[in-house]
Design a protein around this nucleic acid. Structure first.
Lengths: 148, 148
DNA sequence: TATTGTTATACTCTATAACTATA
DNA sequence: TATAGTTATAGAGTATAACAATA
C-alpha cells in the first residue's frame, strides 16, 4: 500500500502513527491489569496531586467533567481510588488507595519496559532531542501549569 | 496540576500528548468538510492506490475489515468514493470519485495549514530530525510495504 | 451567577463473531 | 480451507444538555 508524499510530509500523520505504535504496545503491556494507558495516567495524576478534584483531573487529561466522572467511577469501583470530602461541599478530593498504589507500581514497571522496548533504537541523546522537539509542537510557548 | 517525572519520562506519554494537540487542530481545520483526519487519510490512500480493496485499506489504517467496511460506507454515502468490481468476484476495487478528489484537495490545503501552524516553532532541519526520530520508534526496522 | 458533581443520552470508532459468496 | 465482504452486536471513550447543591 503506497503512502505517498501527501501523507508522509504531514507531521500530524507521523505523530499519529507513532502514537498508535506506542499506545498499542503499552496497552498490551497493561493487559494483565485491565486498565488502559489513559487510566494509568489518571492514577499517576491522582497520586501526584492528592486531593485534586475531578474537574482538574479532567483538565489534565483533556477530557470534560462528565468523562472524568466516568473514569473516576471505574477506578473507584476497582478499589484503586477514593472520593473524600473536598475543600467545598461541592468538591471531591481524590485519593489513591493503597491497592491503587500497589497496582500502579506494577503497571509503571510494565509500561516502562514497553517504553524502553519501543525506543530501543534511539540513543540517550536522540531521545532527549525527540522529547524536546515534541514539546515544541503546538501554537503558544505552552506555559505549563504546575498547580491545580 | 503537577505532572511529575513518571509521566514526563515516558516517551509514549509525550507522543500521546503531541498527537492530541496535532489531531485536535487538524480536526478543527476539517470541520467544514465534516470528515475526520482519519477519513481524509483514507481518501488519500484510495487516491494513491486506485483499485485497492477494503481489507488492504484497513491494514494501511490499522483497522480491521469490518471497521474498514463502515468507513468506506461513509465515504461512499457522501459520494466521495466508489466500489467497483475488483480482481475477484469477492473483492471491491475502491476508486476516488471526482467529487472526492475535489474535496480532498480542499481538505489537504486546510490540514497542511494546520500542520504548518502547529510546527511553526521548529526549523526545517529540526522538522527533518523529528520525523526521522519518530520513524525509528517501534521494534523492528519497520520494512515498509509499498505495494498492496 | 458560576462551579462541581451528577445523570441521561448519544455519537464515534473499533472489535468480535457469524454468515455468504468466492477462490 | 482460506479470503473478501457483509451484518449484527457490543464495548470503550467522549460529548452535550440538563439538574441539584453549593459557592
Amino acid at each position: 500500500m503506497k503512502q505517498g508524499a501527501d501523507l508522509q510530509s504531514l507531521v500530524g500523520y507521523r505523530v499519529q502513527r507513532a502514537n498508535l505504535l506506542m499506545e498499542t504496545d503499552a496497552r498490551a503491556a497493561l493487559a494483565d491489569h485491565d486498565l488502559s494507558p489513559a487510566k494509568m495516567t489518571a492514577l499517576i495524576l491522582i497520586r501526584d496531586n492528592p486531593g485534586c478534584d475531578q474537574t482538574a483531573l479532567g483538565r489534565a487529561l483533556s477530557i470534560n467533567r462528565s468523562s472524568a466522572m466516568k473514569l473516576v467511577n471505574i477506578l473507584a469501583d476497582k478499589g484503586l481510588v477514593e472520593r473524600r470530602p473536598g475543600r467545598d461541599l461541592r468538591t471531591n478530593a481524590l485519593m489513591l488507595l493503597p491497592e491503587g498504589a500497589r497496582q500502579l507500581d506494577a503497571m509503571l514497571a510494565a509500561v516502562r519496559q514497553s517504553d524502553a522496548r519501543m525506543t530501543q533504537r534511539l540513543g540517550a541523546e536522540e531521545l532527549k532531542t525527540l522529547l524536546a522537539l515534541l514539546a515544541r509542537l503546538g501554537l503558544s510557548p505552552t506555559l505549563e501549569d504546575d498547580e491545580d
